[in-house]
């Protein structure tokens, strides 16, 4: 069990999909304009990732090596469609906010990378935790980015107004370039902290 926890922790921190592995950037940059959008996207991706990881791990003996990538893609796309239908049915406002980026979860490199790199070689339980860890790592970074951009860009926190109007809002941050800047600075910060910890040890 402790092994599973280690897998979970690695996914969240030391192998963080965005800050360390640098995968799944499109969704990260596009949907982190507010906390709700970022976390919504993160959790949708986590659901797909956990589902596809477990199913692919269960099917790993059945899936022939030569056509494994198409098989993975079909499984992943099925989960994405299910998530999309559920969002349309029960959370339409989130579905509208994320729009095009829901079907694009299919090509989020995180999912295929975990399927190929972990789930096709490990058992379903470990794959479940791997999916959960990576998904949560992804969600946390999206949430943090969403919080920064929402706070500085629109002066709100979870859509509640926190900055009085006299403070100038940095509109640039909720526009496209802000996504690049925020992620660049966040990544540098993360690298700096990790490097510092390593020298301390």
């Amino acid at each position: 069990m402790s092994n599973n926890l280690k897998v979970l922790r690695d996914g969240i921190i030391f192998d963080n999909p965005i800050l360390i592995q640098v995968v799944g950037m499109c969704a990260t940059l596009a949907t982190s304009t507010s906390i709700i959008n970022g976390v919504g996207m993160g959790l949708s991706t986590t659901a797909v990732l956990v589902g596809s990881n477990v199913v692919i791990s269960l099917l790993r003996k059945f899936i022939p090596d030569t056509v494994r990538i198409p098989c993975f893609i079909v499984v992943i796309a099925s989960f994405v469609t299910i998530v999309q239908l559920l969002l349309q049915a029960y959370l339409p406002s989130l579905n509208d906010a994320l729009g095009l980026y829901i079907p694009l979860i299919v090509v989020n490199c995180i999912i295929l990378a975990r399927a190929e790199g972990f789930a096709s070689k490990n058992g379903p339980v470990a794959s479940f935790f791997d999916g959960l860890g990576n998904g949560l790592g992804f969600t946390i970074v999206l949430g943090v980015m969403g919080a920064i951009r929402e706070f500085l860009g629109s002066g709100t926190f979870l859509s509640a107004k926190v900055l009085p109007d006299v403070f100038p809002k940095t509109l640039l941050l909720i526009m496209a370039p802000g996504a690049f800047f925020t992620l660049g600075i966040l990544m540098a910060l993360f690298k700096h902290v990790i490097a510092k910890r390593k020298t301390a040890e």
Binding site: L59, I63, P64, T66, T81
Partner: peptide, 25 residues
């Protein structure tokens, strides 16, 4: 033939499950 058949099986099963899911939602 074996990989092709297995890929087809996976596709058919997935499409079937999605059909159910789409009916429900």
């Amino acid at each position: 033939s074996t990989p092709a058949i297995r890929l087809c099986v996976i596709c058919v099963v997935c499409a079937f499950l999605l059909g159910i899911c789409s009916e429900v939602t």
